[in-house]
Each structure stands twice: as C-alpha cells, then as structure tokens.
Amino acid sequence: MIQQSVKLQTKVGLYPPYITRLVQEASRYDSDIFITHNGRRVNLKSMMGVLSLAVSKDAELTFEASGNDEEEAVNQIIRTVESFQ
C-alpha cells in the first residue's frame, strides 16, 4: 500500500469536470485507489463517491492505492490533481 497527500490548489474545489478526470485516471489502474478528505474515505473509481465528499478549495486530500501498480497510480493521480487550476 502506498499513500500520499496533496493540497488542492483550485479556486472552486473539486467540481464535476475535475472529478471526472480523476475517476477516469484511477480507472486505468488495476490497484484499489481511495481518496480521503475530512476523515471520509471513498473509492476514487466511483464518481458518486467522490462527489459525496464535497471537496472545497484549499482542501487536503490523501490518496491511497493497493495493488500491483499502486506506486504508478498514486503518482499519476497526484500529477493530475496538481494540473488542476
């Protein structure tokens, strides 16, 4: 298992287009991937799950992956989040 945190640097938080990109990116990997925000942990491959987190701007997010491609998955997810503006 690998885990990494990142601070969201968007003006509006995680809104649907960003969530769609994250879910699509996570779905490319075999590993189980989760996002944690304010103590709530959901499957990153679930659009509804991520939407339910209601992530606002400047939020601290933790990504966790477990599986054969876990390191690559978390690194790519972090790069995706850092690309949001």
Rank of each mutant, 00 (worst) to 15 (best):
M1P: 13
I2Y: 13
I2N: 12
Q3M: 14
Q4M: 14
Q4T: 15
Q9A: 14
K11A: 10
L14N: 12
P16V: 10
P17E: 08
P17D: 08
Y18Q: 15
T20A: 11
R21W: 07
R21G: 09
V23N: 03
S27T: 07
R28S: 09
R28F: 06
D30Y: 05
D30V: 05
D30R: 09
F34E: 10
F34G: 02
H37C: 09
N38L: 12
R40P: 01
R41N: 05
V42N: 00
K45H: 06
M48P: 07
L51T: 09
K57W: 07
D58Q: 15
E60I: 06
T62P: 04
T62S: 10
T62I: 13
T62A: 04
T62H: 00
F63N: 09
F63P: 12
A65W: 04
A65K: 02
G67L: 04
G67E: 01
G67S: 07
N68Y: 02
N68R: 08
D69K: 07
E71S: 09
E71Y: 08
E72Y: 00
A73S: 02
A73C: 04
A73R: 00
A73E: 02
N75K: 10
I77F: 03
I78A: 07
T80D: 00
E82Y: 06
S83R: 13
S83D: 09
Q85I: 14
